[in-house]
Computed example of a mutant assay.
Amino acid sequence: MQRPPADSELGKLMATLPRPGRVEWIGLRPARMAPMDEVGEVVAETGAGLAGDRYAAGSGKRGVTLIQAEHLPVIAALSGHAAVSPATLRRNLVVSGLPLVALKGRRFRVGQTLLEGTDSCDPCSRMEAALGPGGFNAMRGHGGLCARIVEGGTIRVGDAVVALPDAS
């Protein structure tokens, strides 16, 4: 969906968020198929990824993956689990308090780091094994957001997630 002009009524509505979000959890994928490492802080590298993550040297468009904390219970319910650990879903940051979908195509700060939401973070076929039959579909629409790192810095659990005003 193309974003409406920033000065239109819909553009103004889409730019207005109720409050900043908060980083609740940070995880790194040290290698393919390896368990995630939960950390309290991480260095985000400009144009790359998170130090210690297997995708750190990869595509800048997917330098960081984020998932909505409020969606974890939904994914658990839809996949038939009492709860789902963030590590199971293999996203780097769990964020609460603001709708991540509103950050797609926008710049936002997470701690010292400037990110830009690039695309939805759709589930992969591995979610079927991780969550059981139907796990892939349980995550559809709840997979989160991919972001590129515009300005690197340190991200810590508890950091604010703040959308920046549109440049236009």
Rank of each mutant, 00 (worst) to 15 (best):
S85C: 03
V101L: 04
A102I: 00
R32V: 09
A56E: 10
D37H: 05
Q68Y: 00
P99R: 15
G49Q: 07
V42N: 02
G153Y: 07
V64N: 00
A102C: 11
G143L: 03
G11D: 04
G153K: 06
I67S: 05
R19N: 11
V95S: 03
R140E: 14
M14N: 04
A77D: 10
K12P: 00
R32W: 08
P30F: 02
P99H: 12
V84E: 09
P165T: 00
L100N: 08
A87E: 14
G52F: 03
P5I: 11
Y55A: 13
P99S: 11
C146W: 08
P30K: 04
V110W: 01
L103R: 06
Q2I: 11
L72K: 06
G143W: 01
R106C: 10
S125I: 14
G152E: 13
I155S: 02
E128N: 13
A129L: 14
A138M: 08
L78H: 12
A102Q: 14
P133G: 10
D37A: 07
G47L: 11
L28A: 04
L93W: 05
P123V: 04
G49H: 02
L145D: 09
E45A: 01
K61R: 14
D166W: 05
S79A: 15
R106Y: 08
G80F: 03
G27C: 08
S79T: 02
A167N: 06
T88E: 10
G141E: 09
A57Q: 12
I149M: 13
M139K: 08
L10Q: 14
G21K: 06
A160G: 01
V161W: 01
V157Q: 01
S125Q: 12
L98D: 03
A76S: 08
G97Q: 09
A77I: 03
N137V: 10
V74Y: 00
L28M: 08
D166Q: 11
A77M: 08
H81D: 06
N137M: 14
L72Q: 05
P133C: 02
L93M: 09
I149G: 07
G143M: 05
S85N: 11
G63I: 07
F136A: 09
G158N: 05
N92R: 07
R148H: 03
P73T: 15
T88W: 00
I26K: 01
P20C: 09
L78Y: 08
G152D: 13
L103P: 00
A44F: 05
A83L: 11
T113R: 03
G11S: 09
V95M: 04
R29V: 06
M139Y: 02
S96A: 14
E38A: 14
A48M: 09
M33V: 06
A163H: 01
N137R: 15
R32Q: 12
C146V: 01
L93P: 04
L78D: 15
A102P: 06
A15Y: 00
K104W: 07
L100V: 03
A15W: 00
T154R: 13
P123G: 08
G152S: 13
L164M: 13
G47I: 10
A83Q: 15
F108D: 09
M1V: 11
G135H: 05
I26G: 00
A147E: 05
L17G: 00
L98G: 04
A129W: 15
A147S: 11
S59N: 15
G97E: 08
I75K: 10
V110M: 09
S79W: 01
P4F: 00
E45Y: 04
G21E: 04
P18L: 13
S125E: 12
R54L: 15
D37R: 12
P99M: 10
